[in-house]
Simulated assay, not measured.
Amino acid sequence: MYTHLLIATDGSELAEKGVSHGLALASRIGAAVTFVNITEPFPVFAWGGAMVGFIAGDELAAYEENGRQFAKELLDRCKASADGLGVRSKGLHIENRKPAEAILELSASEACDLIVMASHGRRGLGRLLLGSQTAEVLSFTETPVLVVR
Rank of each mutant, 00 (worst) to 15 (best):
A26N: 06
A111L: 08
I55V: 15
L85G: 11
N66C: 02
C112V: 09
Y2L: 00
G124T: 07
A102Q: 01
L74H: 03
E13Y: 02
E64V: 14
T9F: 00
M1Y: 08
H120W: 02
H93C: 06
S107D: 11
C112T: 09
I7E: 06
L23Y: 04
F35N: 13
S132T: 05
D83L: 01
P144K: 14
H4T: 04
G22W: 03
A46L: 15
F45H: 14
G18F: 01
F35C: 08
A100E: 10
L23W: 10
E65L: 08
F140L: 14
D83Q: 15
G124C: 07
S132M: 10
H93W: 12
I55A: 11
D76K: 11
Y2R: 05
K17E: 02
N66R: 15
V87A: 06
E65F: 04
I94Y: 07
K17M: 09
E101F: 01
A82T: 03
T34K: 05
A8N: 04
G18Y: 06
V19N: 00
F54A: 14
G131Q: 09
I55H: 02
K79I: 12
E105R: 12
K90Y: 04
R88Y: 03
V148G: 10
A50Q: 14
S119F: 01
P99C: 09
A108F: 07
G48T: 13
A15Y: 09
E13P: 00
V19W: 00
A135Y: 07
E64W: 03
F42D: 08
W47P: 02
A61H: 10
E64I: 14
V87H: 00
G18T: 02
E136P: 08
E142R: 15
A50F: 10
K90T: 12
